[in-house]
Design a protein around this nucleic acid. Structure first.
Lengths: 317, 317
DNA sequence: ATTACTTACGTAAGTACTTACAAATATATG
DNA sequence: CATATATTTGTAAGTACTTACGTAAGTAAT
């Protein structure tokens, strides 16, 4: 008890388990009360078969929300106790359709009586509470179906981690990091081209001195992302060398870098930002769209072999 | 899904189980997200040990609300993975106190980070719902601790069955039933005495013709209970031969019979109802108290050997 | 008609607990 | 102080499901 108070809803799963075990135990007591030769775990299958005979194992499993294996085992046991019988499906010999035996049918009314008593008791029990458990469970299942807990936790984590990401300006000391980050992804998907090596080995000469800019992302004292703006003619810049280290991916660092680059371009009075990419890079393209880029068809010839898509974003002044 | 809609809260236990399994599955996903060498089921134990080292297996089990066996197993596994170490309790060599190892302590901050992310995500998840599951579970656990489900169901059942109980007047055709019911319990606890046989074999002569009355309880076309009022002097009656067949016990039939007898005594302008019983008959004595009887010490001598307690109830006119 | 794929099911083994039992130690009682 | 009883723990086996896997039967594509 103690523990759940301390840890709170984090242990939702454990607590649900405990409560379900408690309920199962009490269900066993209830069954004992009625002296029926029947085990609680048979109930869902037996109930559905009694309501509508001729359903197959798979159908039953789907209805109950358990696996077919579980239903198969229960059906076997019910059969052993003479409460149901099975036969192969007419037309589809794989199906195993279940019906009540005479003995099962004879048991049904008593079981219904019991079920009805339990329903009344449970409903009254739930009505004693201010927060309705049954409805709450339905809502939770719905919410989890919409979006899994893992995905929700990931979002929380990324928000926390993203707050630790800083965007800083390039300095000569970071050349090795800048190169490493870009070599990593280029070699993973394509191969390094001469234009890459020039820019990565001598960013001062080929980017900065030509009125370009380089931004870096740091996370916990480490350089984990880069992004360059190369000066083009007519108030335009090319966005390039956008890289995020694999270990830091998923934290929205690419978006932060891209946005910072666009801010910088805006500050430099650019009217247009252009970029080259490859359709293989799904995540990158998605990011570019999210940043506001759109595909263009008549872009300039590219020095890069891997370029098979060109995009641009027009900035309002 | 289907099934739960149909059956409603009757299947509360099954549904809780399903939801808890769903949550466990999602918890596993969350753990995978953080790449920690840690299994979800270790969490409660590890958490408590990290918060306060030096607790014993039993204490931990109590705090978590699981059995000591489960904790013992988890501790063993945590030990095997080098996260905790154990030693015998100082002063009490039976106790096995658990502390974190250096490796466990090193893991703790990362686990705390994760726990915190989960807490935020789960809290947000619960806040999405109108009916708060966490609070609802707390309320339900409380309600169940107050009174078990079995006891609640029993009350519902008894109410249903009690409605089918009828109190009727004795008729000569029922003599055999009257005798059977009383012989059954008397022989079970004591042995038949001459006074018993007279009253049971010839109730007309020994009870009715002496201005006494006999009431019978029927349940589903069967005579399941009896109760006699024997005329005493001074506007008093003796309540006797109160019997309920074992199969029909627990339905409150005794109370109905007793109440009907008191009503009858009232109608006969009695001022006092007297009875003789034995302290071995717990259930009967409880019933007599519930009906309003209280023990007296200076009652008349009884013809029955088994009589070791006498009670009376004064009726207001 | 053959082949590849999908579906339905049963069986075996795993999971995360439980209950049952046994052993060691502590405490109470005569 | 010996002995009976209670407490603490570990181990084994059970429970009510699950996942994994194999087999048989059905369906689609060549």
């Amino acid at each position: 008890m103690d523990f759940f108070d301390q840890i709170g809803p984090t242990a939702l799963g454990s607590r649900l388990r405990r409560l379900s075990e408690q309920m199962s135990g009490q269900a066993a007591e209830v069954y004992a009360l009625y002296h029926l030769p029947f085990e609680p775990r048979w109930f869902p299958v037996f109930y559905l078969v009694a309501e509508q005979p001729g359903q197959s194992v798979g159908e039953l499993a789907h209805r109950i929300g358990q696996t077919h294996a579980a239903v198969s085992q229960v059906v076997k046991e019910l059969g052993k106790h003479g409460l149901v019988c099975t036969e192969r499906g007419a037309g589809d010999l794989r199906r195993n359709v279940v019906t009540l035996t005479a003995k099962g049918a004879a048991l049904w009314p008593a079981l219904q009586e019991q079920t009805n008593d339990v329903r009344l008791a449970t409903t009254a029990l739930l009505e004693e509470t201010r927060h309705n458990l049954w409805l709450a469970m339905g809502e939770l299942e719905h919410a989890l179906a919409q979006r899994s807990l893992a995905s929700r936790v990931k979002a929380v984590r990324n928000q926390r981690l993203a707050a630790e990401v800083r965007i800083i300006d390039y300095q000569p000391a970071y050349q090795a990091d800048f190169k490493r980050l870009n070599v990593e992804w280029i070699e993973h998907y394509f191969r390094l081209e001469p234009a890459d090596l020039r820019a990565l080995d001598q960013p001062e000469t080929y980017i900065l001195e030509r009125d370009g800019h380089i931004l870096l992302a740091t996370y916990r004292e480490e350089i984990v992302g880069s992004c360059a703006l190369l000066k083009m003619e007519n108030n335009a810049y090319e966005l390039a060398k956008l890289a995020v280290s694999p270990a830091a991916q998923g934290l929205g660092i690419g978006y932060q870098l891209g946005q910072a680059a666009l801010d910088k371009a805006q500050a430099l009075s650019a009217r247009r930002v252009y970029l080259e990419s490859n359709t293989k890079l799904d995540a990158a393209l998605q990011l570019y769209y999210k940043l506001g880029f759109h595909k263009i068809v008549d872009g300039p010839p590219s020095p890069y072999e891997r370029c098979n898509i060109q995009m641009e974003l027009l900035l309002s002044t």
